[in-house]
Amino acid sequence: MNGFAKAFFRGGGLLAAVVMLQPVVSASVDDAQSFALQAAEPYVKEGFQVREDYWGGDLASGQKKAVRQQLFKGNEYWFWLGTEVDRAKVSVHIYDSDGKLAEDPDGWEKGHFAAAHVTPKTTGSYFIIVSVEESPEERTHWALVYGFR
């Protein structure tokens, strides 16, 4: 059974495990943030303003977490997820307040980086779901940053 299914059955559904996160101040999450910012770097040249604030934490392989974020119609957003664990695979996806996948199709996942793009159709709350799909570590630190233009 893959990591996704494991998490689904162990936790009584991935969404049951969802919690809101607070910015975590630890060296490893800071490292993860550096990677997330690295993923964001090319987008700054395209006019995206990257926020200084970020979310972070650690997850076991196959686990997911969600954060709720207010987005504004008219803006365009990228969310970048990073971890310092080289061989980890991470993903990030964006859902609207009805639980419908809201992201644009140009999101990407490249090993320990992932990104999701959204041009909100309405102003309101969105759910950003982050996941550590695979990792050689028991717990994998992650950080999520976002930018807008």
């Binding site: 990591g3 299914a5 639980g99």
Partner: peptide, 25 residues
């Protein structure tokens, strides 16, 4: 699930999500 693992589900059940907004950015 493995067959669809690479793709995000088109819909999730948000009722399962926490209703409390905490520590948002």
């Amino acid at each position: 699930l493995r067959a669809h693992a690479a793709q995000a589900p088109q819909r999730i059940d948000i009722k399962e999500l926490s209703k409390t907004v905490e520590d948002v950015v």
